[in-house]
Design a protein around this nucleic acid. Structure first.
Length: 577
RNA sequence: GCGCUCGUAGCUCAACUGGAUAGAGCGCCAGAUUUCGGCUCUGGAGGUUCAGGGUUCAACUCCUUGCGGGCGCGCCA
């Protein structure tokens, strides 16, 4: 349920009636007429732009048209207290108090599904996120994208869509070869006391490789480490497995679990790359040609040569992209195209990729391939998560560029916890850099939005505790003839905006609206709470240690919204703090 | 050089599909608080939304030019 949608429906009916009577001309697209939340100062509940949109077509001034329409609106609805017209031509509707009583009772009755967009068609989504190279633990940079992907999935699930969360494992190619070699040298270091070749910059120096080496030795799956060539394949598989375990543990520590891991190696092994290249060739998207050297830096070493190219320029890319290396093996891009063909074959309605900001340049070419493969029927939606700037003691906390030395996701979670990590990472729009201030995040104050929201929930719980009621149990509503005060209606109005918040977050895949919304709701609640200091009638529990039904319902509705919002974010709502 | 992206109060950021007099928090100033729960609340000051041009009844939002920051521009993944 969504009071804005409901009003919109009523309004459109009125408009259609008037147009049938030929009193009004309507535009072909009636959806430009919107219902909105009026700014606070107008002291009304819903507003609409209808008069401004229709004024030109009907050759009337917006104000006159607004006056004319507001009479029809008022006449039509006994729950409307008054309808007023404001300057450029807005129509503002204010409901009677009983409207809000009815409203909150409906919210309570639908508490489980409140906020879900009922009218939206249910679709299936594949969300690919993280997909970090399986060569070591995740760092802070990965973390933001990971949480973004997870919460976008939660949002879609909340709206009853089908979602598969997927991780693409890049376990093929040079980086993996170097990684495997690194593990190999560590093993020789342990078994034969040989020193690790620190001067080789292709190798991974991190200490975690030593643990991987130890685990592989312990597992006894390979018995003889003397000849690298002989064991490199098996060792590679084991090494990837080990580092994937580290990554999965990292993800679990922030509450993330993927449904599916797809191996690049497997895609290559199944000849999926050949097949997809063949298919593209058949549809004339592949050709042999030369590609220009990049405009940047020194192009001295650039050797122009004839190579297999994908025509991504046909879909707006800067240049066509190479599919095959000179040694005959496939480029990363080629196998990724095959992977996306694989996704398409699984028949999802929508494909979503979450990428780091360093991959923005990659979006055009990969979405081009999806266009080419699906005949532009399926769009690949790419969301980019920008950098995270860590701040400690008011200073940027530099991620050292020194090899193998970066702040890991594990470090972050150990420092501030899962809830704070998730909440703060989502607090900003994903396409803006984010300051992650360690000092605020662990503070128990308003400076810490997580704490502030959780605290409001805990306060509500304390009321329930004091009257010996369980906050989870369902409320039985006997009478509903009470009315709420203006201070309470302020909060009810905020609650009525919740479905709108969810709708926008889902449509734009921008979950950052949710922490903002919850903060605002919490703020209103804390204000209300403080009113109890002066006015005993604003306190929840009266002198006889009882609570009235209206207050009980009121609290329950607030806590429900906070809880379901926090659930989408993936942060907890402790009953005591 | 080219592509993508961001630019809003001193600072960190909101602002719905293009809506009204652009909102919060921090910091600053002034107050409240013997409470259901303790960094909670109330008020004040603070703006040419980077700059110019355009579209529109209406532009922070869309188009365009310029400026500034970030990212990317390999047969790396």
């Amino acid at each position: 349920m969504n009071i804005f949608d409901e009003f919109s429906t009523k309004l459109k009916k009125i408009l259609l009636d008037l147009s049938k009577k030929e009193e009004l001309i309507l535009p072909s697209n009636i959806n430009v007429i919107t219902t909105e939340i009026p700014p606070l100062k107008f002291n009304s509940d819903i507003s609409t732009n209808v008069a401004m949109v229709l004024s030109k077509l009907n050759k009337k001034s917006p104000i006159d048209l607004a006056k004319y329409l507001s009479e029809h609106i008022k006449k039509n609805d006994e729950l409307i207290d008054n309808v007023s017209v404001a300057k450029p031509g807005f129509i503002n509707i204010k409901f009677k108090k009983i409207f809000w009583t009815n409203f909150i009772i409906r919210v309570i009755k639908n508490s489980k599904s409140y906020g879900v967009n009922e009218f939206e068609e249910k679709k299936s989504y594949l969300v690919e996120f993280v997909s970090a190279n399986p060569t070591g633990p995740l760092h802070v940079g990965h973390c933001r994208g990971a949480i973004l992907g997870d919460v976008i999935s939660n949002l879609l699930l909340f709206n009853k869509h089908k979602v598969k969360k997927e991780y693409y494992v890049n376990d093929y190619g040079n980086q993996i070869a170097n990684f495997t070699k690194s593990v190999y040298y560590r093993i020789r270091e342990i078994l034969y006391k040989e020193t690790f070749p620190d001067s080789n910059y292709d190798l991974y120096p991190g200490d975690y490789i030593i643990n991987i080496a130890k685990n592989i030795i312990k597992s006894n799956k390979i018995l003889d480490f003397k000849n690298f060539e002989k064991i490199s394949n098996d060792l590679s598989v084991l090494s990837v497995e080990e580092s994937l375990n580290i990554i999965k543990n990292n993800l679990n520590s922030v509450g993330i679990e993927h449904d599916n891991f797809v191996s690049e190696r497997q895609i290559v092994k199944n000849n999926e790359v050949e097949k997809v290249v063949e298919l593209l060739q058949k549809n004339k998207f592949v050709y042999k040609g030369k590609i220009k050297a990049p405009e940047s830096e020194n192009t001295n070493n650039w050797v122009e040569r004839e190579q297999l190219l994908f025509k991504s320029t046909e879909f707006g890319d800067d240049k066509d992209r190479v599919l095959q290396k000179s040694d005959g093996s496939w480029t990363y891009f080629a196998s990724d195209v095959a992977y996306h063909k694989n996704k398409l074959d699984r028949k999802f309605d929508n494909l979503i990729n979450i990428l780091g900001s360093d991959h923005t340049g990659y979006i055009k070419r990969i979405s081009s391939s999806v266009d080419a493969l699906s005949n532009s029927k399926v769009k690949l939606i790419c969301k980019v998560s920008q950098l995270v700037k860590l701040i400690k003691d008011k200073k940027p906390f530099k991620m050292s560029k020194r090899r193998g030395d970066y702040i890991t996701l594990e470090d972050l979670v150990n420092e501030v916890g899962k809830d704070a990590t998730r909440f703060i990472m989502l607090n900003r729009s994903n396409d803006v850099e984010l300051d992650f201030d360690f000092d605020h995040v662990i503070e128990k104050s308003k400076d810490n939005p997580l704490y502030y929201v959780q605290y409001s929930y805990a306060r509500i719980c304390s009321v329930f505790r004091n009257i010996n009621k369980n906050i989870e149990s369902e409320l039985k509503i006997k009478k509903s003839d009470f009315e709420y005060s203006d201070d309470e209606i302020k909060i009810l109005k905020k609650i009525s905006e919740w479905p709108k918040c969810i709708e926008m977050s889902t449509r734009k895949l921008e979950p950052n609206r949710i922490p903002t919304y919850l903060y605002e709701l919490a703020s209103l609640f804390h204000s209300y709470w403080n009113l109890g200091k002066q006015s005993p009638n604003k306190r929840f529990i009266d002198d006889n240690e009882k609570i009235s039904d209206d207050k009980l319902i009121f609290l329950k509705a607030i806590s429900n919204v906070i809880k379901s919002g926090m659930k989408i974010i993936g942060a907890s709502t402790p009953e005591r703090m």
